[in-house]
Design a protein around this nucleic acid. Structure first.
Lengths: 204, 204
DNA sequence: GGTGCCGCATGACATCTGTCATCCGGCACC
DNA sequence: GGTGCCGGATGACAGATGTCATGCGGCACC
């Protein structure tokens, strides 16, 4: 019989993290050997405990689960990566896969899929919700340039053009031009809607 | 020795819900007898299983955990109510307590507090994070009128004044007036910021 | 019965936002 | 060496947004 699977759990909400650990603890062949609450603590913990699989939530302080995945993939390529998220945003799936993730799960899915995904990625499989995969492909890639994304992100909190201009060291007109092209690319009618759809698609 | 505490668990994300159930299942004296994923299924489930404590997430389809709490409090006053949420928004705490909640927990808190809160509400105690309670008191009550809140909520997705006017059967000028007063009450400079702070405080 | 708040409305005004045409330098690709 | 995209900028214009004064009817509270 093979030894247990060593799992690292990265999730910022303590209650959810410990609950997921309890859930995985019920499995005979799985052991949660490390828990972290921040994205920037993932690499050290993975190194220290020699984990087989890392379970990464996307929304975390320090670094997102996707950033952590990219780092792990580069530094510890043997570690299998399961990305876990509240939001089934196509853009998230896309960037998770591009960062080297082996599985992508949404928290809406039944709990049984979690242990299942851990075992399957270790067996070399990839685990992705087919519906979400289809949506990601249908949406295509992020049409926004880096700068457009940056400015849209900055505009998301309701800042005015003047504030954005000073914050980003641009002229007010330039800010408006970028927002205008972003609005057109996203086929919406104002910046607020642009922020909305970009968020929903995971493009922000 | 007393019998086990019967708990109802209401949370829309299956993985989180089942994980929390696993966590509570580790406790000798607690038994999760019902799980629901929607706010509007809470009452029936509570009735059917004769639960002692209801654990209610706020963000749920069908009805929010706060609405569910109010309903349970009216229909089954013997059931103790624990409200659970991702967001420690002062306004949430306030309306949860006004709806008859006995405990208010954020998912950031350590998992041990969950079982602890269940036992304490059953003993007649109230369980609230003191920091959050202070914030709720410092913020004061929601300064927005019903109508202002309604219009701000409708404007949150980036709808234009014209759209809001037709949707709410108002004149465009009236829409602008309401938004203007909301903006002033919240001490911000445009509708986007107003939406932001209203959301953060739990006033939306 | 007066006072005050709410919902709703209008009109006028100033400012902010979004669009468009046009320009420049840099860089990649054929 | 031409073509095209990106980052950055200007100026002009139309339309959307925010402010303010003012008015009305309804309702609650003293």
């Amino acid at each position: 019989m093979s030894r247990t699977i060593k799992v690292l759990l990265a999730e910022d909400q303590a209650m959810v993290r410990e609950a997921l650990a309890a859930l995985l603890g019920l499995e005979e062949d799985i052991e949660v050997v490390a828990q972290v609450a921040r994205g920037d603590e993932v690499l050290d913990a993975a190194r220290a405990h020699g984990v087989d699989v890392a379970l990464l939530d996307i929304e975390m302080p320090g670094a997102t689960g996707i950033e952590a995945a990219a780092l792990l993939h580069r530094e510890l390529p043997a570690v299998k990566l399961v990305v876990l998220t509240t939001f089934g945003r196509p853009g998230y799936l896309r960037s998770a896969m591009e960062s080297g993730a082996d599985a992508f799960l949404v928290k809406d899915a039944p709990a049984a899929q979690l242990a299942d995904a851990v075992r399957r990625v270790l067996a070399g499989e990839r685990v992705i919700d087919p519906t979400l995969a289809a949506a990601a492909l249908a949406d295509g890639a992020n049409p926004l340039t880096d700068r457009e994304r940056e400015i849209l992100r900055a505009a998301a909190d309701g800042s005015t053009n003047a504030e954005l201009a000073t914050a980003l060291h641009l002229s007010q007109g330039t800010v408006r031009n970028y927002l205008s092209t972003a609005i057109q690319k996203l086929a919406v009618r104002n910046r607020a809607e642009a922020v909305q759809v970009a968020r929903n698609k995971g493009w922000l």
